[in-house]
Write a protein that binds this DNA or RNA. Structure first.
Lengths: 261, 261
DNA sequence: CCTTGACTCTCCCAGCGCGGGAGACTCGAC
DNA sequence: GTCGAGTCTCCCGCGCTGGGAGAGTCAAGG
């Protein structure tokens, strides 16, 4: 019989951990002195502890590990837990790899520009949403405000607006005519009897913020597109804008729908 | 000015998070009503929050994020933090991939054998350690006990033994003669004036436990080697054994030094 | 037998990044 | 004025330990 310290030293595990595993019933001490509370372990328990540590190192929680350590785990339950773990791990790996790519893109950017970026680009996925839509050819980007007010006027006053936005189906870079779809986003649950409700599908976007009326918005667009390309995406749809609060005068979030290139 | 709820809705962030960021000084509310405690936010803060969320999504802690959000982070500090993050992320990815490979190997094993494995194999890295050594040709595996006792006898009694072990430089599978190096491991700090102290280098091993004197130890060896090969390693050195507590009669940990194949 | 130093016990606090909930206010529309 | 929705603060919880306090215990040497 070994005292906890010796057992811990043999197993290269902290005493704290052993006590914790004992409390949780994961690896109960073989014997506990009633009067002193001293825990005593058996060398044979090294094998159990070894199993425990293996499961832990696979990423199982202590609760799951306890189940796996149970006297006889039916094979199908074991397999289920393993496949669940595989799924979770695969997801984690994908996430961490994406993060790593993001960080590397940022390092490259800092080394190129010698400082923090002027515009912060985020790649993220957008939930599908519900909106009232009004699409027109315009001569100026400012016309979107008028379109938004028009939509709003058609809406019962008590219906709350979640967000104002627009999709620029064609921008002035491709000709004199601008093709603008003004969007008034509504809450998912409030679905008024308005006729032209549009379901805006979710997607992955490159997103960047700028102040409404800023002069160098082109820089923001370029930053977003460059970052997206650097991360292996390509632009897969018309640019969108989301306005914070009021239809004009505030922060604008620009989004470029993406798909993996 | 927006109340916290509206700001949270715009940013698709929980109110709890905003309050938390406020408390930590990460994203202080633009104004707080003295009498009611209500927090008020500015749409321009959406950009800051955006940056905050980006740093978070790169895996920075809130504390690091606060530093990164500071008014003017010097470029070299930014780069340092990014490269540190890259290192950490790369390590994480490597770990998670190794775990995933482990889990997949186990799934394959369960599907092949239809149940939990007889022997649990762990791949782990071993710290370098200090030992007294005695190497001999033996006729039987049991001779190691005698060797260990010999070493122990040469040692001052008050020097504590950390562990007993052996390296089998040649096993009986390769001929009648066994080449055994008995090892008495000592604590790093207690370094007596004994002459033949050996530094056992650290390495990665496939490790498996069995009871001393078990009949099917071959199965354990095979399990360890198969698992190691399945994970892309190959055996790179002579088999080692570590004895728990007494030199004989107890748990034996068998280790196969590995290198990536 | 007593001392001494190493060991062990239990209990509490800390950290991360929030979420949940209680109980008390406050806002804004009708 | 009233009501419901919003907001406040405070506390607990999660998972897995690590650190430390304060008390008790073991084993070896004098």
């Amino acid at each position: 019989m070994l005292k906890i310290g010796e057992f811990a030293r043999l197993a290269k595990v902290s005493i704290k951990q052993l006590r914790h595993y004992d409390e949780l019933g994961l690896l109960p001490a073989r014997a506990v002195d009633r009067s002193t509370g001293y825990r005593y372990y058996d060398v044979a328990q090294l094998a159990t502890l070894n199993r425990l540590l293996i499961y832990r190192s696979l990423g199982f929680s202590l609760k799951e590990t306890r189940r796996l350590l149970g006297v006889d785990t039916p094979p199908n339950e074991l397999r289920e837990m393993l496949t669940a773990r595989r799924t979770a791990l695969a997801a984690r790996v994908a996430i961490e790899r994406a993060r790593l790519a993001e960080v590397e893109a940022r390092i490259a950017q800092v080394e190129r520009d010698g400082g923090a970026p002027r515009y912060e680009v985020a790649i993220r996925s957008i939930e599908p949403s519900l909106a009232m839509s009004l699409r027109r050819r315009c001569d100026s980007y400012d016309d979107v405000g008028e379109l938004l007010r028009t939509i709003r006027a058609h809406l019962p006053r008590r219906v709350p607006v979640a967000r104002y936005g627009a999709i620029w189906h064609r921008c002035s870079t491709r000709g004199p005519q601008i093709d603008c779809e003004a969007l008034v986003f509504l809450d998912r649950n409030t679905r008024p009897a308005g006729t032209d409700l549009v379901e805006i599908p979710g997607c992955t976007v490159a997103s960047v913020f700028h102040e409404d009326g800023a002069s160098d918005t082109r820089l923001a667009y370029r930053a977003a597109i460059e970052r997206a390309t650097a991360l292996g995406y390509r632009v897969a749809g018309p640019m969108r804008e989301l306005y914070a609060g009021q239809p004009a005068g505030g922060m604008v979030e620009v989004q470029f729908p993406l798909c993996s290139a």
